[in-house]
């Protein structure tokens, strides 16, 4: 275990290298790539993915998986917009919608931790519950979010894109956990659930907490999504989940638990964003776009696994 902790700070390295590689490629390929305006438009688009990857990372470190985060985003988004449309205030409607998202997280955590059901299936079921609720609340896209929020989200402050505030908040939330003894317990649990349990750590509570954390961060991601789209859409989150898992793995998280960092999550998701931007900018025939972006993502996963493999061989 000691070996792994000393290597912790390097876990994000492969994803950082991938990010740097694509920054260089895109600097040549995309005009004005290295400008404030480009950075701003990049982060307005990809901040939700960054946040969701952080949310997913925490659950993965604890040895679980959460595939309901995309549906939580949809649920929070439509609840917020619908309540806003019904005359609720900005903050009150926001709090209620975040609570709706948290409720799904509580359900996930409770069933996984205390009923001991496979997290993949639990979150598959709850993603259909949350997605169904979102479709019930708002059967088709509509409504509008606060115009001030939308304007603020697209602005830059001293060259720094506003959406980065959300990334900072999520990162601080992560540090608030990782730097306390509970962080150590989280990693210990992910590494070896049974030993951790035997040593007196309340593993069920920590498991529970990872799902609540991920729902909370997914809720913040939903704020970013709503600010980016300015409207409600019951299926808006659907495509995020699987990309968040892929980004987390590229960022160095182990699906076996116990390994991962928020920094890796951030680099992994930025890499995905850059990869997609590259495909958009390369102007290739439309029939090959899906194949290319799929292949880039797969290569990223393989690359990240190859570097991890060298570290892990000793444990095999």
């Amino acid at each position: 275990m000691n070996t792994r902790f000393s290597l912790k700070r390097f876990q994000a390295l492969p994803s950082l290298l991938l990010v740097l590689l694509f920054v260089v490629i895109d600097a040549f390929l995309i005009p004005h790539f290295l400008s404030d305006a480009y950075a701003s438009s990049f982060f307005t688009s990809y901040t939700p993915l960054i946040l969701l990857t952080i949310a997913e990372t925490v659950v993965l470190i604890g040895g679980g998986i959460d595939i309901s985060i995309g549906s939580i985003v949809s649920l929070v988004n439509v609840t917020w917009v619908t309540l806003g449309g019904a005359g609720w205030g900005f903050w009150s409607s926001l709090v209620v919608s975040l609570l709706a998202g948290l409720a799904i997280g509580v359900l996930n955590g409770a069933v996984v931790a205390w009923l001991r059901v496979s997290p993949l299936l639990v979150t598959l079921a709850t993603s259909s519950i949350a997605g169904g609720l979102a479709l019930w609340i708002m059967p088709y896209p509509g409504g509008s979010a606060s115009a001030n929020l939308v304007t603020w989200y697209q602005a830059t402050f001293a060259g720094i894109p506003a959406p980065l505030l959300f990334v900072v908040i999520a990162y601080l939330l992560w540090l608030g956990w990782a730097l306390t003894p509970w962080g150590l317990r989280l990693f210990a649990m992910g590494n070896h659930m049974h030993k951790t349990y035997v040593s007196g750590v309340p593993v069920a509570s920590i498991q529970f907490a990872t799902y609540v954390f991920s729902a909370l961060v997914a809720g913040i991601a939903a704020i970013a999504v709503t600010a980016n789209t300015g409207a409600g859409d019951p299926t808006i989150g659907a495509t995020y989940t699987l990309y968040a898992i892929a980004a987390a793995v590229i960022g160095g998280v182990s699906l076996n638990g116990g390994v991962g960092t928020a920094a890796g999550a951030i680099f992994g998701s930025i890499f995905l964003g850059l990869a997609f931007s590259t495909v958009y900018a390369a102007n290739m025939p439309s029939f090959y776009q899906d194949l290319t972006s799929g292949a880039i993502v797969l290569c990223g996963i393989i690359f990240a696994s190859l570097t991890k493999l060298r570290r892990r061989r000793q444990f095999a």
Partner: peptide
């Protein structure tokens, strides 16, 4: 939406 909700609830 309701259909999806019910399917999820039953699976859970």
């Amino acid at each position: 939406g309701v259909r999806e909700l019910i399917q999820g609830a039953i699976l859970l």
